[in-house]
Lab assay of single mutants.
Amino acid sequence: TYYTVKSGDTANKIAAQYGVSVANLRSWNGISGDLIFVGQKLIVKKG
């Protein structure tokens, strides 16, 4: 599943929404920190 980042989103918020850990969200998308951008497409695997 892909999720498009919206204004006000955070890695924590997206992870919680899908029931996954922030560490997994980072791993699936090659993100090292919490910096995400509006319009960015993230791979999300439901927990």
Results as ranks from 00 to 15, higher is better:
Asn24Glu: 15
Thr4Gly: 03
Tyr3Gly: 01
Lys45Asn: 12
Leu25Lys: 00
Thr10Lys: 04
Lys13Leu: 10
Val20Ile: 15
Val38Tyr: 05
Thr10Arg: 03
Asp34Ile: 08
Leu35Lys: 13
Asp34Phe: 08
Gln40Ala: 07
Val44Gln: 01
Leu35Phe: 13
Asn12Glu: 15
Gly39Leu: 04
Ser32Thr: 14
Val38Cys: 07
Gly33Leu: 14
Ser7Asp: 14
Lys45Ile: 11
Arg26Asp: 03
Ala15Trp: 03
Val44Thr: 05
Lys13His: 09
Ala23Met: 08
Phe37Trp: 11
Ile31Asp: 04
Thr1Asn: 10
Lys41His: 10
Lys46Cys: 14
Ser27Lys: 14
Ala16Gln: 12
Tyr3Leu: 03
Val38Phe: 05
Phe37Thr: 10
Val20Arg: 00
Ser7Glu: 15
Val44Asp: 01
Gly19His: 09
Ala16Glu: 13
Ile31Met: 12
Asn29Arg: 02
Gly39Cys: 05
Gln17Leu: 14
Val44Ser: 01
Lys46His: 12
Ile43Glu: 04
Gly30Ala: 10
Val44His: 01
Thr4Ala: 06
Lys45Ser: 14
Leu35Asn: 14
Thr1Gln: 12
Ala23Lys: 09
Gly30Leu: 08
Val5Pro: 02
Ile14Tyr: 01
Val38His: 06
Gly47Leu: 13
Tyr18Val: 08
Val38Ile: 11
Asn12Phe: 14
Tyr2Ala: 04
Ile31Thr: 05
Lys46Ser: 11
Ile36Cys: 04
Val20Tyr: 02
Lys46Glu: 11
Gly19Cys: 10
Tyr18Ala: 07
Asn12Ser: 15
Gly33Asn: 11
Asn29Thr: 02
Ser21Gln: 06
Lys41Val: 15
Gly30Thr: 07
Val5Ile: 05
Lys6Trp: 03
Arg26Pro: 00
Gly19Asp: 08
Ala11Phe: 15
Thr1Val: 14
Tyr2Trp: 14
Tyr18Pro: 00
Ile14Leu: 05
Ala11Ile: 15
Val22Gln: 05
Val44Trp: 02
Ser21Asn: 07
Asn24Tyr: 07
Asn12Lys: 14
Val20Gly: 02
Ile31Asn: 05
Ser32Gln: 14
Ser7Met: 14
Tyr18Glu: 06
Asp9Thr: 01
Ser27Tyr: 11
Arg26Cys: 14
Val20Trp: 03
Gln17Thr: 10
Thr10Glu: 05
Gln17Trp: 13
Ala11Glu: 09
Asn24Ser: 11
Ala16Ile: 11
Ala11Asp: 06
Gln17Met: 15
Tyr18Thr: 06
Val20Asn: 01
Phe37Lys: 10
Lys41Asp: 06
Tyr3Trp: 03
Gly47Asp: 13
Gln40Arg: 06
Tyr18Ile: 07
Asp34Ala: 07
Leu25Trp: 00
Ile14Asp: 00
Asn12Val: 15
Phe37Tyr: 13
Lys6Glu: 08
Gln17His: 11
Thr1Arg: 11
Asn29Gly: 02
Ser21Glu: 07
Ile36Arg: 00
Tyr18Asp: 00
Gly8Ile: 03
Val22Leu: 13
Val5Gln: 00
Lys6Cys: 09
Trp28Lys: 01
Tyr2Val: 09
Tyr3Cys: 06
Asn24Leu: 14
Gly30Gln: 11
Gly19Asn: 10
Ile43Tyr: 08
Val44Asn: 01
Gly33Ser: 09
Gly19Met: 08
Ile31Glu: 05
Ser21His: 06
Ser32Leu: 13
Ser27Trp: 10
Ala16Thr: 10
Ser27Ile: 13
Ile36Gln: 02
Ser21Trp: 04
Ser7Gln: 14
Thr4Gln: 08
Ile31Arg: 03
Trp28Val: 03
Val5Phe: 05
Gly8Thr: 06
Asn29Cys: 02
Lys46Gln: 14
Gly19Ser: 08
Gly47Ser: 12
Gly33Lys: 07
Lys41Cys: 14
Thr10Leu: 04
Lys46Met: 15
Ser21Tyr: 04
Ser21Asp: 09
Leu25Gln: 00
Asp34Glu: 10
Asn12Asp: 15
Leu25Val: 04
Val20Met: 09
Ala15Gln: 02
Gln40Phe: 05
Tyr3Phe: 03
Tyr18Cys: 10
Val5His: 02
Lys6Pro: 01
Ser7Val: 15
Leu25Ser: 00
Thr4Pro: 01
Leu42Pro: 01
Leu42Val: 06
Tyr3Pro: 00
Gln40Trp: 05
Ala23Arg: 08
Thr10Asn: 07
Leu35Met: 13
Asn29Ile: 02
Gly39Ile: 04
Val22Gly: 04
Gln17Lys: 13
Ser32Pro: 09
Arg26Val: 12
Gln17Asp: 10
Gly30Met: 09
Val22Phe: 05
Ala11Gln: 11
Asn29Trp: 04
Thr4Val: 14
Asn24Trp: 09
Trp28Pro: 01
Tyr18His: 12
Thr4Tyr: 12
Tyr3Met: 05
Asp34Asn: 11
Ala15Arg: 02
Asp9Cys: 03
Ile43Lys: 07
Tyr18Trp: 14
Thr4Leu: 09
Asn29Lys: 00
Gly8Pro: 02
Val44Cys: 03
Gln17Phe: 13
Asp9Ala: 01
Thr1Lys: 11
Thr4Cys: 11
Lys6Asp: 04
Tyr2Arg: 06
Phe37Asn: 08
Gly8Arg: 04
Gly19Val: 04
Lys13Gln: 11
Val44Tyr: 03
Ala16Tyr: 09
Ala11Leu: 15
Thr1Glu: 13
Gly39Asn: 06
Gly30Phe: 09
Asp34Met: 08
Ala15Asn: 01
Lys6Met: 10
Trp28Glu: 02
Ala11Ser: 07
Ile36Pro: 04
Ser27Asn: 11
Val5Asn: 01
Gly19Phe: 07
Lys6Phe: 04
Lys13Tyr: 09
Ile31Gln: 04
Ser7Cys: 14
Ile31Cys: 09
Ala15Gly: 04
Leu35Pro: 08
Val22Asn: 03
Gly30His: 11
Ile43Trp: 10
Thr1Gly: 10
Thr10Cys: 06
Ala11Trp: 15
Trp28Thr: 02
Ala23Glu: 15
Gly8Tyr: 05
Gln40Asn: 05
Tyr3Ile: 08
Lys45Cys: 12
Ala11Gly: 04
Lys13Ile: 10
Ala16Asn: 10
Ala23Ile: 09
Val44Glu: 01
Phe37Arg: 09
Ile31Ser: 04
Val38Leu: 08
Val44Ile: 14
Tyr3Asn: 01
Val38Lys: 06
Leu25Pro: 00
Gly8Cys: 05
Thr1Asp: 11
Ser27His: 12
Ala11Thr: 15
Ala16Trp: 10
Leu25Gly: 01
Asp34Val: 07
Ile36Asp: 02
Gly39Ala: 03
Gly30Glu: 10
Ile36Thr: 04
Ala15Glu: 02
Lys45Asp: 10
Asp9Gly: 00
Gly30Asp: 11
Ile43Leu: 15
Thr1His: 12
Ala23Trp: 07
Lys45Gln: 13
Ser27Thr: 11
Gly33Met: 14
Gly30Pro: 06
Ala11Tyr: 15
Gly47Arg: 10
Tyr3Val: 07
